Amino acid sequence: MIRLLLADDQALVRTGFRMILENADDMQIIGEAINGAEATKIALDRQPDIVLMDVRMPDVDGVEATRRICAEDPHAHIRVLILTTFDLDEYVYAALRAGASGFLLKDTLAPDLLSAIRSVARGDSVVAPSVTRRLLERYVGTGHGSLPGPGNLASTDRLELLTDREREVLGHVAYGLTNAEIAGRLYLSEGTVKTHVHRVLSKLGLRDRVQAVVYAYESGLVRPGSGDPR
C-alpha cells in the first residue's frame, strides 16, 4: 500500500486528487495539508511514502517544505512529487534542487497520475532526465546563474571524489541517457553502469537521477547547449 499525503491550499484540488487516488486499490491517503508548514509536520510525524506537494502555498511554500522534509529525511524514505500549473515554473527547478523526485502538471490525466505515483514509490523519478535537462538548459542558459532555491546543491570540490569513469557516467546521465544506453556507449554491462550511478549518487550526496542532472549542470560538468556526448 502506497501511503500518500496531499498538500495543496485549494480544497477543490485536494478533493479532486482524493477522488482519483481513493479508487486505486494500492493507495491510501493518510493526511491533507493546506500549506508547507503543515505538510512538513504531518510528513515527519506520519512518514508517508509520497507527498503530493503544491508549489505555491501560503506561509511556507512547497519548495521550502520539500527542503525541510528532505533535510529531516536524509535516507529518502519520504519522496516528494511536486504539483504545478506551469511546466516551466522556476519554483519547480528549486524544488528539484531541494530534493523533489519530480513534478507533474495539475491537469495530468488520472492514469498518468497513478502511474507516476507508482514509479516514485518504486524509487524512480517521474521527470525523465532528458526533460529535466531541457528545463535546466532553458533556465541556466538565460544567464541567471544557479537555479533559485535554498542551499547550494553544486560544489565542484565534490567532483574530485569521482573517478574518471564515474564522471563520464554522470555526464551521460545528465544528457538523459538510460543505463542501457550508457552501457552501449561505454561498452559496459548495464549492471556495471547501475553500480557507477549508485556510487555517484552516494559520493555526491544526491537522492536520485534528477538531482544528478541538476548537479551536473550547476557544477559545470555539463554546460547548456553543449550537446549529447558521443
Rank of each mutant, 00 (worst) to 15 (best):
I20M: 14
L136P: 08
G184L: 13
G143P: 04
N152E: 15
R185D: 07
M19C: 02
L221D: 04
L12I: 12
G176E: 03
I30G: 04
T142K: 11
R46L: 15
D107A: 07
D25M: 11
A11V: 15
L204H: 11
A7G: 03
Y215R: 02
V63E: 05
L6Y: 01
L177D: 11
D228P: 10
A71E: 15
S130M: 05
M19W: 10
R199G: 00
R14I: 10
D54P: 13
D8V: 02
Y139G: 01
E64H: 03
A65Q: 10
L177P: 01
R56D: 06
V169C: 04
E190T: 13
M19D: 13
D208H: 15
G123R: 06
D208A: 05
V140I: 15
F103M: 12
V222R: 13
E64W: 00
C70W: 00
D208T: 02
I29M: 06
I2E: 01
G16T: 11
L52R: 01
R165T: 12
A24L: 09
L186A: 02
K203F: 09
E22H: 05
H75G: 01
D208L: 06
V55C: 15
Y215W: 13
G102K: 10
V120H: 01
T108G: 01
D59K: 12
P229Q: 07
P74C: 02
G227D: 05
R207K: 11
V140N: 00
K106R: 14
D9K: 03
V92K: 06
R158G: 00
P150T: 05
F86N: 13
